[in-house]
Design a protein around this nucleic acid. Structure first.
Lengths: 190, 190, 190, 190
DNA sequence: TCGTAAGCGAGACGGTACGTCAGGTCTTAAT
DNA sequence: ATTAAGACCTGACGTACCGTCTCGCTTACGA
């Protein structure tokens, strides 16, 4: 009736192997066979629990401690945005993984939903919370479209990550923070 | 010594087949074999002239008349941006193709360069030209980071195209145009 | 310390399921998983008691009442052989099972021994007993190689079952009985 | 229109590899992957030309020079049969291959037809030709069922090969030859 | 004008990975 | 201790495409 319970060891080994393969070979070269072989797991065990290799990577990513979202509270919108973007930009080692997941999300609608709901949404919520706090302090126009502001910030980040035509460094973060702070200020035209 | 020249018919048939497959099956299901079969061409003919299937799609896309970039000149930045975004958003039928190419560009660095230089660059240049005209008219701060503004506009567009969490309609275009116009206005803090 | 005794119900369900699968799908498609699923038994229960799926089938076969060996005693060798072959041929519904077991016995030496000792041997002994009785009556040459005669009879049967190039009907039985009766007669050259 | 022609080298390498794997591991352990790997061929190349691994083995077997059928002509039925059986028994190294093919032929009807028509039929025809010659010489009863005689000979051989309960040596060949010669003699009862 | 060099459709080739199936082993809770 | 359930590792299956390679056949140049 009950059956053998799922092996936590196998799950951990698979997630660990996925990250290792990602690091060594990159997202494009990732294969289910490779992950299974490195994890000492059967392919079936992967297919039993994850619909695609991208879901494995997503789970692995979400379990990484470094993935915790920093929500700064510096007292002013500008300082908060600076800190938020600096924290986000500092994880540049994961750009390859993130863009790989975004690519997969384009190619596989089922994964797109998981990616949106389990990864992107929490980051959007964090940034939105930051903006809402600023609005409560009167730093953001009461009628501002906060979702659009979130999209402007993350859109610019993702666009540069994906296209790679411009740097994602501290200076870029400061300029983007300044632009957004200004665009959100009270009294702007609607 | 010269040999038989390249067949324009084969080239056209291949591009046509690529677009047809794209339309019927979507980017993820695209295969070189499928394109060749539908075009009545040999696979070798494709590999002889294009390094990857994404390059075929890119060529096909660039040859589409609808792909011509509209660079409006309405007399004011706000009106120009409105028109520019409206024109861009109206091509929503191609979102699947565009996001597919972006995905491919993540997975294949060689294609990424082609995509950046042959597709994205000209669109960025068009938008930048629009902003430069506005700056010459005094509608944009002299010290504004025009490249950042371009990234903000295209970043937001691509982000919404890729994630699909928010609409890309006329209203969204107007709000984005308003935000950018305001952020670029002279006298804003740096 | 003795633990739960073997479940007769499980054993019966497994044998029943094996026969049912055999009938519906044929020997080649038989799987331990399929038998277990249909029997509502665990795979382990099968592996605990039978070394291979063929052994399950062998047990199932040996338990079938129809499998009882008819050893006729009609008073003459010819009549006995006729009856024996007629009885054997009449079980033509089991040809698929029998040839399946013979195939398995080729592919698995461990099963081959079980098949030989638990199934084939008793049938050979029955036929040999029939011939010995005939020899005691003087219908068979004292120096005849009874084992060879048994092989000739069963060899011809199995060959036709396996190859399927010629019928195994009443007429074929009579001809074979006549041939063997004649070949075994006293006074034949050695 | 034509396409690249089939590679004779690949075909030969595959047949050679199949025989080598057979010799080293036996029929039961034969895999398409193993054959492909040893032949340095792609699996698809095997699947393109042969419906199953057994068909590969059959082709390999038919190409072996040692497989030529010896049809002796010694002047008398008894001597012919002795020679025929001796020649057949001498190829005992191939028993494993032959029984493997017979097993496959039980499990796969499509292969059964190929095995019957391309392998068994020619051997049956050779033996039948030998018996027909004897009948023309008056050594075989005019009304004898030659097909039954062929089945008796091959049936006995196959039965001993498959079951392995009795030797297939020169002495066994002589006894079988004697039995068949006697059973076929003119004037026997019908 | 005619050879020849390259392009062309076709399709076989060696590979890699896919997602599935079944094998035989193991680990639970329940009996 | 045995059972049903079912997860586990293993290994082979047959398929899909990859990118390369030969074929026989055009086609247009240039000697």
């Amino acid at each position: 009736m009950t059956g053998r319970p799922r092996s936590a060891a196998a799950r951990a080994a698979i997630l660990r192997a996925a990250l290792a393969e990602l690091g060594e070979r990159g997202y494009a070269a990732l294969t289910v066979e490779g992950i299974a072989a490195r994890a000492g797991a059967g392919k079936q065990t992967i297919y039993r629990w994850w619909p695609s290799k991208a879901d494995v990577v997503l789970d692995a990513l979400l379990e990484t401690a470094a993935e915790r979202i920093a929500v700064p509270d510096e007292g002013s919108l500008r300082a908060d945005l600076d800190a938020f973007l600096a924290a986000t930009f500092s994880q540049s080692g994961q750009h390859g993984v993130l863009t790989g997941l975004m690519a997969q999300s384009v190619l596989d609608p089922a994964f797109a939903q998981a990616f949106r709901e389990r990864f992107l949404a929490s980051r959007r919520a964090a940034l939105r919370g930051l903006l809402e706090r600023a609005r409560a302090r009167g730093e953001v126009d009461a009628g501002a479209d906060l979702d659009l502001l979130v999209d402007v910030v993350y859109g610019t980040l993702w666009y540069r990550m994906l296209v790679g035509h411009a740097p994602l460094d501290a200076e870029a973060g400061r300029r983007l923070a300044a632009l957004v702070t200004d665009a959100a200020r009270p009294g702007r035209p609607g």
